[in-house]
């Protein structure tokens, strides 16, 4: 693919609240993704997400500013309750959403058969990372775009795009799942709440902080110590895959350091690899994060064409990253 026919990549931004949606639209998002305030989406945290009315208003606000709204209905429907997930799809269509992002066969099947005019995106939670899996979802349900699991490197994304007929979307900034999305039961093992079924990973009501004998603060999940912090220092949230554990007689960050994804340096490579859309994580984050990150990435994406340097805008995002540390994650093969 020559650079002349590379389209400008779309910037897909998170919104956990109507205010965040407006902030994202104002900061230049091409598309905004959000979810309903229940277990049908993978950011089901207290105080977050949208009612049907809020969604309809959000769609109007975004459309007036040239932005699309994508509704994440990307958990797996609970047995005997698939109607809750089906209703979410119908409500998203009724609110005028531009697409639904889904992972479960039950949800995809309902959307494809009952809302044939509604565009379907395959959620990262479906963990489809081979041409065979992606073609299956495209041919069976008419999926138009796949959000790639964070298990692939940039050359692999390029190879994948040559073999599939649908658009690809990749995460470029924010929280990073270390495990393959949708294929992790660590949080349910510790707490009993399945992220796949309830949309909550490391649920706040199972988190507590406890001082040990030496005065260090232990961050715990389901009673298991996930990390330990020096007294007086800011204690991080106990996300299981970014905790410290001991193995082989040593202690440390066994799975991943407490880092966030920042693939800014790879934007040009991602564009050359044929990626259609860039996704920013963070529906649980506040307006300031949304406005700051969206504006910086807007500059960065536009800068690929105009040549304007967005490095200082991106560098200023460091404070938004977990522990202030950033990584390019699986996009660089050495991460593995």
């Amino acid at each position: 693919m020559s650079s002349s026919n590379q389209k400008r990549m779309e910037l897909v931004c998170p919104a956990g609240t109507p205010a965040a949606l407006r902030a994202a639209a104002d900061a230049g998002a091409d598309a905004i993704y959000c979810g309903f305030a229940n277990e049908t989406n993978a950011r089901n945290f207290p105080g977050l997400n949208f009612s049907s009315e809020e969604l309809a208003k959000g769609v109007s606000y975004a459309h007036a500013r040239g932005a699309k709204v994508l509704v994440a209905i990307n958990t797996f429907a609970q047995a005997g309750q698939t109607c809750v997930w089906e209703k979410a799809v119908d409500d998203a269509a009724a609110a005028g959403a531009d697409a639904v992002i889904a992972a479960d066969l039950a949800v995809l099947d309902h959307a494809a058969s009952r809302q044939p005019d509604l565009r379907l995106h395959l959620s990262v939670q479906a963990a489809a990372n081979t041409p065979e899996a992606i073609r299956f979802y495209a041919e069976t349900f008419g999926v138009k775009r796949v959000v790639l699991p964070r298990v692939v490197s940039v050359p692999e994304i390029a190879a994948l795009n040559r073999e599939i007929g649908v658009e690809t979307e990749v995460f470029v900034f924010g929280g990073l799942c270390v495990m393959t999305e949708g294929r992790c039961s660590l949080s349910s093992f510790a707490t009993g709440k399945s992220p796949n079924l309830t949309g909550v990973c490391s649920p706040p009501d199972h988190v507590d902080y406890k001082e040990d004998q030496s005065g260090r603060l232990q961050a715990r999940l389901g009673g298991f110590t996930i990390d330990s912090f020096e007294s007086g220092h800011a204690a991080g949230y106990p996300t299981l895959c970014k905790g410290q554990f001991s193995a082989l007689g040593k202690s440390g960050y066994l799975f991943e350091d407490p880092v966030s994804l920042n693939a800014f340096e790879l934007l040009e490579d991602l564009s050359k690899a044929g990626v259609t859309a860039l996704k920013i994580e963070g529906r649980q984050r506040g307006k300031a994060y949304i406005a700051g990150v969206v504006r910086a990435f807007r500059q960065a994406v536009d800068g690929l064409e105009s040549g304007i340097d967005a490095r200082s805008a991106i560098a200023a995002l460091k404070s938004f990253s977990e522990g202030g540390q950033q990584t390019a994650g699986s996009y660089k093969k050495t991460w593995r």
């Binding site: 393959t180 992790c184 039961s185 082989l248 799975f255 991943e256 699986s330 093969k333 991460w335 593995r336």
Partner: peptide
């Protein structure tokens, strides 16, 4: 033992200071 999660990263390799490749 319950199979709980898959990753693209190899934790055995990482714990031994190696990479998956």
């Amino acid at each position: 033992r319950l199979p709980l999660a898959l990753s693209s990263r190899c934790y055995h390799a990482r714990a031994h200071g190696l990479r998956k490749d």
